[in-house]
Design a protein around this nucleic acid. Structure first.
Lengths: 191, 191
DNA sequence: TCAATTTGCATCATAACTGTTGCAAGTCTA
DNA sequence: TAGACTTGCAACAGTTATGATGCAAATTGA
């Protein structure tokens, strides 16, 4: 590839990124927003968006693919298979929250569409299951709680924390893991 | 009102209910479904839907209003202000889950739109806050947990439980409250 | 059976969004 | 400066959803 082509492709890729980020901003507030609104938020003409993404579906797909790559990288960076479960839980949580704060809409759309995206998500989910299994084996997680329910609760808490945007990712992760493991009760029954 | 009118109005109201229930079924699966799809699911012509509801917005508004009434009644039935906090928590949870299982979409759209609906939701939220406050005072809830975060977690768990549809409302409520109060951890640290 | 009402059907108008194309103007590199 | 490429603008076609209306048929109670 010539230097010229590379430079020009850089420009194009910058535009693509700008559009993806604008789309995330707009669609996270209103999932039914039009291409026009997305283009306006990106500071480009609607035709430019259509030149870069053949259809609305392709745009959302690209958003999902991009967010999914970040997501997988965030989980990977925490080495969830090679650190003590509790440590991994904190690291994964904080890393994922950082991504989810910026790509909430894209991540919510990541389940359908592209098979490659679905595969990565299934991979991460499986990793999560393994992590929870290890946590249970070392006694961090209760044995009398359905692992699937525990995972669902974990996902729900991550979603809720990202929505609340209360504090930075580390503070949120700390509170989230605390709540996940200890709950919000004292254990004193009726008090 | 004449007997005739009453009988005829009864018919009309039956149709309205049929449409509302069909709309819930259809829109909970696909929020972007068309009026045509809703009409088909209700077994009526699209024009009939338009005759009963001036616009799509009016239909969704009616769904929200209907679900909100059920929601408020579900909370009310548990007498959350006059029973021990832990008991009220169980009762409210089970009752709300029953409504949410049937009117998930309508309840998710209850926040915007109609001011009356918004008021009822604000009322219920305030009731929830009072309940949590009492629970904290009698030592059921930890004093070191932000009450607002606790409430958010509670809402998130209700949402997740309703999504999972794992078991009946009572079983779900039992598990939900257990998770809310004790979490899924053993409290044994790194194990 | 009569009268009121509701429904289905066909049809129409309108609006909005999507996606495409041609062309002039701009940018960046060689 | 020349060339390759990208962008904005304007205009267009096609599709789809929305909402309204007139009329015949069906229902229901009196």
């Amino acid at each position: 590839m010539s230097e010229t082509t590379r430079a020009l492709r850089s420009d194009a890729e910058r535009t693509v990124r700008t559009i993806l980020e604008a789309a995330e901003r707009v669609l996270s507030r209103n999932p039914a927003a039009s291409m026009e609104q997305i283009a306006e938020a990106a500071g480009v003409a609607r035709t430019t968006v259509h030149r870069r993404f053949a259809s609305r579906e392709a745009l959302v797909g690209a958003m999902a693919a991009w967010a999914t790559r970040q997501f997988a990288a965030a989980v990977e960076a925490a080495h969830p298979d090679n650190t003590p479960p509790l440590v991994a839980l904190y690291q994964v949580t904080a890393n994922v929250l950082r991504v989810k704060l910026d790509w909430g809409f894209a991540m919510s759309r990541a389940l359908s569409a592209d098979p490659e995206v679905a595969r990565v998500h299934a991979d991460v989910e499986e990793r999560c299951r393994r992590l929870f299994h290890r946590a249970r084996e070392v006694g961090v997680l209760r044995a009398d709680v359905d692992p699937e329910w525990a995972r669902r609760v974990y996902y729900a808490l991550i979603h809720e924390a990202a929505e609340s945007r209360d504090g930075d990712a580390d503070a949120m992760a700390t509170r989230l893991v605390d709540t996940l493991l200890r709950g919000v009760g004292t254990g004193r029954g009726l008090g």
